[in-house]
Design a protein around this nucleic acid. Structure first.
Length: 178
DNA sequence: CCCTGATTCGC
DNA sequence: GCGAATCAGG
């Protein structure tokens, strides 16, 4: 239902901060959510903020740490995968993040080879968008592994995400069902 | 191939 | 005003 997001005061303010902070247009777009880097660049120009890396200004702007991303920004970007298919996409965000710490682990064998886990800052089109953790916390990450072309997940998470909606309780391991 | 910003132009 | 498509470059 968030179809009407546009350049609100908040979003423009965030855009300004991030751009002036040296963030790239794509990174900014990712944080804003719902817009592409082109949209960001276009807006930047209209605002008259274009080309910040220039002349007389001091430091090369390199070592400055990224601005803290507030919850609002994360929530604005995470909620809608934009192009959702009929089958349910991900595991849905854990919300309150039920403990399940100790001997619980994941529903699948912990076979995930190397989840690089990335923040929305480094998430790219070709990276697995499988959410890990509570999106309302700064620790929230995405799988980040190489995603299958055309799909938002890596092979591992795609298997989990696209299981037949029916009967997915305990897979019978190809016991010749039916 | 990955990425960056800049510009144009139809909507 | 907006942003996809395109361009030009690293």
């Amino acid at each position: 239902m968030e179809a009407g997001l546009s350049w609100t005061e908040e979003r423009v303010a965030l855009l300004r901060r991030l751009w002036e902070d040296g963030q790239s247009a794509s990174k900014i777009a990712a944080q804003l959510g719902g817009v592409t880097r082109n949209a960001v660049i276009g807006k930047v120009h209209r605002l008259g903020l274009a080309g910040r890396v220039k002349s007389g200004e001091d430091a090369p702007v390199v070592a400055s740490k990224p601005v803290e991303v507030e919850k609002a920004a994360i929530l604005a970007a995470a909620p809608e995968p934009a192009v959702v298919v009929s089958h349910r996409p991900a595991p849905e965000f854990p919300q309150a993040a039920p403990p399940a710490p100790v001997a619980a682990a994941a529903p699948e064998p912990a076979a995930i080879p190397v989840s690089q886990r990335v923040t929305i800052m480094d998430l790219r089109e070709s990276m697995c968008r499988w959410p890990l953790g509570d999106p309302t916390t700064p620790e929230f990450r995405f799988c980040g592994a190489r995603s299958i072309t055309g799909l938002p997940y890596c092979t591992h998470h795609a298997e989990i995400a696209y299981q037949p909606a029916t009967e997915r309780k305990r897979d019978r391991r190809a016991a010749g069902f039916r």
